[in-house]
Each structure stands twice: as structure tokens, then as C-alpha cells.
Amino acid sequence: MITWTPIIEKEKLTPDAGVCALVNGKQVAIFFDRKTDKLFAIDNYCPASKANVLSRGLITSVKDVLTVSSPLYKEHFSLTTGECLEDEALSVPVYAVRITDGMVEVTA
């Protein structure tokens, strides 16, 4: 059974930025893109820099793919697939995210 963990009210999120949530022991990076009014959730661990920092990266579009640019060495990870655009061998898990009654919820 899928369990959704409530994280924070959506209105408390800063637009075009990420936050990190602790969900069942996992670190989940949640991003809020203002332009499309969409939320994205991927793992917070950056496999390239080996640190839990992806939520602190800049949201950027690379040829129309919405990505987060890892803050340490700037690899781009797709917010929808978790793939690293620079290195096929690297990717991060993607998690489901939704809004219920103004509350951001994640499964992980």
C-alpha cells in the first residue's frame, strides 16, 4: 500500500527553489517550479559529489528539460527522470509528490 507522508504547506515553499524532507529515513529533495506550478521530488543525495545537497541546487532548464544543477560540481539531474545529463552512469531515485488540501505529500 502506498503511504503518503505530509511534509509542509505548499504556500510555505519558496518558488523556484528546493527543500529537503526526511521521509521514512530517506532524504527527499522537493522542488517547486513557479512557472509551471509543479512540484518534483528526487533523492537528495548527489552521486557525483557524494553529499546530500541536491535540494540546495539551482532549478534550471537545459534544452527544455527541467533539471536541478548540483550545487557542488554542477551536474544536471532531470527532475522528472532523475537521470544525470552529463554522465549516463549516474542517476538519482525519483519520488511521487502531490498536494492534498494545500499540503505537500511524498511517498518514499
Binding site: T14, P15, A51, R56, L58, L72
Partner: peptide
């Protein structure tokens, strides 16, 4: 400010220089 935060480079967002371990 909300209008500017999402534009800032890594170090500016948290007003500190991020080191290799975050």
C-alpha cells in the same frame, strides 16, 4: 526575497560558501 531567491548561485542562497561535504 521570494522573487530573487530562486535565481541565486549556490553560495548566495544560504549566504555562505558551500564546502565539498555540503
Amino acid at each position: 526575497e521570494d522573487d530573487h531567491l530562486g535565481l541565486q548561485d549556490v553560495n548566495d542562497v544560504y549566504l555562505g560558501n558551500m564546502q565539498k561535504d555540503g
